[in-house]
Amino acid sequence: MTDQAMSEAAMLISLRDITLPVDAAGGLGADIAATVGLAGILALIIAGMFRLFSMRRPAAASPLRGQLFAIREMPDDARRIALLHLLRQAQPERYAVIKCALYQPGGGVDIDTLEAEVARLV
Rank of each mutant, 00 (worst) to 15 (best):
M1K: 06
Q4R: 12
A5I: 07
A5Y: 13
L12K: 13
L12S: 14
L12E: 09
I13Q: 15
I13G: 12
S14H: 13
S14P: 03
R16Y: 06
R16N: 14
D17K: 15
I18P: 10
I18E: 14
T19F: 06
T19I: 09
T19R: 14
P21N: 11
D23C: 11
A25M: 08
A25H: 08
G27H: 03
L28R: 11
D31N: 10
I32T: 08
T35M: 13
T35D: 14
G37P: 00
L38S: 13
A43P: 00
A43Q: 02
L44G: 15
L44W: 10
I45M: 13
I45F: 08
I46F: 09
I46W: 06
G48T: 01
R51K: 15
L52Q: 13
M55H: 09
M55E: 12
R56A: 15
R57T: 14
P58E: 07
A60K: 01
A60Y: 03
S62Y: 06
S62W: 08
P63N: 05
P63H: 07
P63E: 06
Q67D: 09
L68M: 13
I71G: 05
I71P: 00
E73G: 05
M74E: 07
M74R: 04
M74S: 04
P75D: 09
D76H: 05
D77Y: 04
R80A: 03
I81E: 12
A82F: 02
A82W: 01
H85R: 15
Q89L: 13
Q91A: 15
P92W: 01
P92A: 02
E93V: 02
V97A: 09
V97L: 14
I98E: 06
K99M: 09
K99V: 03
C100G: 13
A101W: 14
A101G: 05
A101N: 07
L102K: 05
L102P: 01
Y103G: 11
Y103N: 14
Q104C: 06
P105A: 03
G106R: 10
G108S: 05
I111F: 05
D112W: 02
D112P: 03
T113M: 07
T113L: 04
E117R: 02
E117I: 03
V118C: 01
L121Q: 05
L121C: 04
L121N: 02
V122C: 14
